[in-house]
Design a protein around this nucleic acid. Structure first.
Lengths: 111, 111
DNA sequence: TAATTATATTGCAATATTACGATATATAAT
DNA sequence: ATTATATATCGTAATATTGCAATATAATTA
């Protein structure tokens, strides 16, 4: 099949999985880290930096932009990409919230 | 292609992406949440709970077990799965560390 | 205007993931 | 020993993702 059965899960679970997807590929992780370090940068920087083809970088940037964690503004001929601070903090909050759930209850049947 | 170019990225980036993958599918998110609530449970619970086929659940459990975030112990006929607390805290720390990077530097070229 | 540069999009090939039926395995109960 | 129950694995089909060459688009410069 290959088709995720989205209807079986809650809105929250699907939304969280969408966020997880952002971090599920090293190229996207690397792009985010590069943007975090530079605070703003252009596509071509990333092509040099990462070693992937320009089309591939562009595609990853598109995905990151689609979910909203980065935003791009036209800067003459080139593009200036940067982290969307508001979205970044929302992601941060979602993950903190998730990880704040305790893995162990201390009950008798606790592993 | 479909083949991630792992060699282009750092160990840390690849490792973080592996962690991200855990949260990139709603079924795995739902399984983790169920384990967090119940603290321990068996496969059949999840089949009832999630509505996916037994083989599918088993496959997701296998992946979660492979990366170490859950562990399973044989409990008679059934399996008792639960979160691996140590690994859970390690994941939590990695994500906290990642999100603690600041999206905006306050410089002139800041978006 | 023509050439240049930067980025996006298209089309395609290859691998990965998701899902499930069927089957295997292993323990428990009768 | 046979049956029932729970979980894992195998095989397979379908969709998703990754990656890139080629091409399109759009802004800048000569």
């Amino acid at each position: 099949m290959g088709l995720t059965k989205t209807n079986l899960f809650t809105e929250e679970q699907n939304a969280f999985a969408q966020m997880g997807k952002v971090f599920s590929h090293p190229a996207r992780v690397a792009i985010l880290q590069h943007l975090l370090n530079a605070n703003a940068c252009i596509n071509s920087d990333l092509v040099q930096e990462l070693g992937l083809a320009q089309a591939t970088i562009s595609q990853h940037l598109k995905e990151l932009k689609a979910i909203g964690i980065i935003k791009g503004t036209i800067e003459g001929v080139s593009m200036s990409y940067c982290i969307d601070e508001e979205k970044w903090l929302a992601f941060k909050a979602s993950f903190e919230n998730f990880f704040d759930q305790h893995p162990c209850c201390g009950a008798d049947n606790c592993c």
